[in-house]
Design a protein around this nucleic acid. Sequence first.
DNA 1: CTCATACTTCGACGCTAATCGAACCGTCCG
DNA 2: CGGACGGTTCGATTAGCGTCGAAGTATGAG
Lengths: 226, 226
Amino acid sequence: MRDGPDISRIANLVGDPARANMLTALMDGGALTASELALEAGVTAQTASSHLGKLMEGGLLSLAAQGRHRYYSLAGPQVAAMLESIIGVAAAVGPQRTRPGPRDAVMREARICYDHLAGEHAVAMLDGFLARGVLIADGDEIRLGKSGPPHFAAVGIDTEAFRKQRRPICRACLDWSVRRSHLAGALGAAILDKIIAEKWARREAESRAIVFSPKGKMAFEKAFLA
Amino acid sequence: MRDGPDISRIANLVGDPARANMLTALMDGGALTASELALEAGVTAQTASSHLGKLMEGGLLSLAAQGRHRYYSLAGPQVAAMLESIIGVAAAVGPQRTRPGPRDAVMREARICYDHLAGEHAVAMLDGFLARGVLIADGDEIRLGKSGPPHFAAVGIDTEAFRKQRRPICRACLDWSVRRSHLAGALGAAILDKIIAEKWARREAESRAIVFSPKGKMAFEKAFLA
DNA sequence: CTCATACTTCGACGCTAATCGAACCGTCCG
DNA sequence: CGGACGGTTCGATTAGCGTCGAAGTATGAG
C-alpha cells in the first residue's frame, strides 16, 4: 500500500523497551558484551540474546567476537543519528507525562551513565578538561593532552595502566539532559570510581542519581575542575 | 534501568505498519483527513481512528477540526526529521533483503503515490514545470505560475475548477527512490487521471507500478515535459 | 425532520511477540 | 581432561495489540 523502504520494521526494532535500552547504551559508539547489554536492558540473558539476534538481522548492530565474548556495537553513525532524532522527539513530547519532580532535578545534575558520571557536573568537567588542554578533542575522538597523565596522576589515577585495556581511555557520550557530551571510557569510569571511593558522593537507592555532599563537591571541583 | 525520555514509546508508535504509512503520507507537511489516512494505510476507518488516537496521545500529530472533517498533520518539523532519519536507516539497511529485481526498476521509473504519479518521470515533470515557470516554488509551497492555467487548459485540465475544492492544488511529495520532490495535490491527481484516461499507461496488477506504452510515453512527454 | 456522511467508541477475535526455565554449544582456566 | 563461564537455542506460557463488525455521536444537506 505504501512505497519505499520498510520504515516500520526498523522503528519496531527500536520500539521495544529492552531493545531501546540496549541501543541507547551503545550510543556512545562503544561496544558492549551480551551480558552487559542484558543487565542494561533489565532482562535475562536468554531474552537479551533473542533481542540481539533481531537487532542484528535488522542491520542495526554489528558484532565482533573475541574469545568467548561477543561485543555488540551500533552498525554505524547513521543508526546513532536516528536514535538521536528519536530521543529528540521523545524529549520534546515526553515531558507531558513525566513531570519533572525534585528527583529529576538531581538526575539532571549528576547521575551514573553505565559506569561513568553524567549530568551537568560531568559536562562541565569535560569542558574544563578540553579548555585546559588536559584532554584534546580530535574530531569525534578524545585524546589525552600532554598535561593529561601528570594531571590525573596527581589525584591517583594512572592513565598509563589504561593503555593495556582493550577499552578506549576517553570517549564522548551524549548527555540527554544537557544535550552536550560528557566523558565516558576508562578514564570516565576511573573518575567515577574515585568519586565513590572518596565518598564525595553516594548513589541514591533504586536510582541512577548521584548526590554530592557539600564537602565532596568542593573536593571534586578542586580535583577535576581546577 | 535507563535514563532519559521514553524513546521506545515513540519508536513503537512508528513501528506499526499502518501508523508508519500514515506518518509517511504526512511527511510532505500537508494535512489529511482521517478517511484519507485510512485509505493510505490500507485499514478500515475504525482501525485508523484507533491509530490516530494513539499518535495524537503520543504527540506525533496535531489536529485541526473543520466541520465534520478532521485534518491530521505532523506535530512539527522535528517529527518529520525523525521520520527522515528512520527512512535513511531503513533504506541503507533494507536492500539486503529485497533485492532489486525488474519489478523494482519499473517502480522507480513510475508508480502511483496515493492518487498521483511518482518516480523518475514524476520528478522530471515537476522539474520541468518549475524550470518553465508553469509552477512556482514558494518556499515549501508550490503555486501556479502565470502561464500555468492556460498551459494545463491546453491539455484539458481546468485548474480553475480546483479552486472550489478544499484540497490544495499543488503539493510537493518526497520521492523515496529519487530523493527529490514530485507533484501531488489536486493537479497531480488530475494529471494521473489523464494519463490513465488517455491510456498512455496502465497499472500493473497487484502493484503500484505504472507502465507506459511507447506511444503513451511520447504523448506524456509532449503534453507535460515540452 | 430525515437522511447521508465523517468519525469515534465498544466488544470480541486472533495472532504475534516478549518473557523465562532449561538444556545445549563454545571458550577459558587449572 | 573437568569445571566454570559466556552465549545461544528450544519450548511453553502469557499478555498485549492490531483488526474488524456493529453501534453510537456529530455535522451537514435537502
